[in-house]
Amino acid sequence: MTEQLFTESISQICKNEKEGLRRIYEDYNPMIYSAVWEIVRNREDAEDLTSEFFIRLWNAADTYRSGRGHRAWMLTIARNMALDHLRKRRREEPVEELPEDPQGQKAFDEGVVNAVSLAQALQTLKEDEREIVNLKIMGELTFREIARMLGKPQGTVAWCYRTAIRKLREVRL
């Protein structure tokens, strides 16, 4: 979605026209869902947070200022919601839950390396690598935007991304 279309959609939301939110949802539901899932690693929580994100977007559309890079803006907010949720969950549930695979698949098994799926290959990446891959591919953010979001040097982010992609390719050879 272009910045202009996003701004138009936000204007529709401000006029209580659901079509505006619908357009944003259709374009960005996978982006938001996958971004929060990468943090909470729990399907139900990711669904809750994604729903909550879009409801809040509806309620707070008038706070958006165009020209700021809407994808980075949305992802920063979604990511903060997910991190908040994670902190609270950890306080409430001292015993950490085991991470869940996005498609319910088992953890990566070296014994099936020749037939490894992408979901399994992703399990070989570190957490920050997975998040950078997600922000890059699903968020279509620049390395600079990701670096700003994660508070890491741009070169580190670029290097981390390339390393992750290389790992995925190698694992799947």
Binding site: N29, P30, T50, S51, I55, W58, P102, L118, I165
Partner: peptide, 24 residues
């Protein structure tokens, strides 16, 4: 890899629209 990743994540995202719409 990128295309496959995008497809996988897109497929994994559930349709939440009815739930969202009911909250608007």
């Amino acid at each position: 890899i990128e295309r496959e990743y995008r497809e996988m994540m897109t497929q994994a995202a559930p349709d939440l629209w009815e739930r969202i719409e009911s909250g608007l």
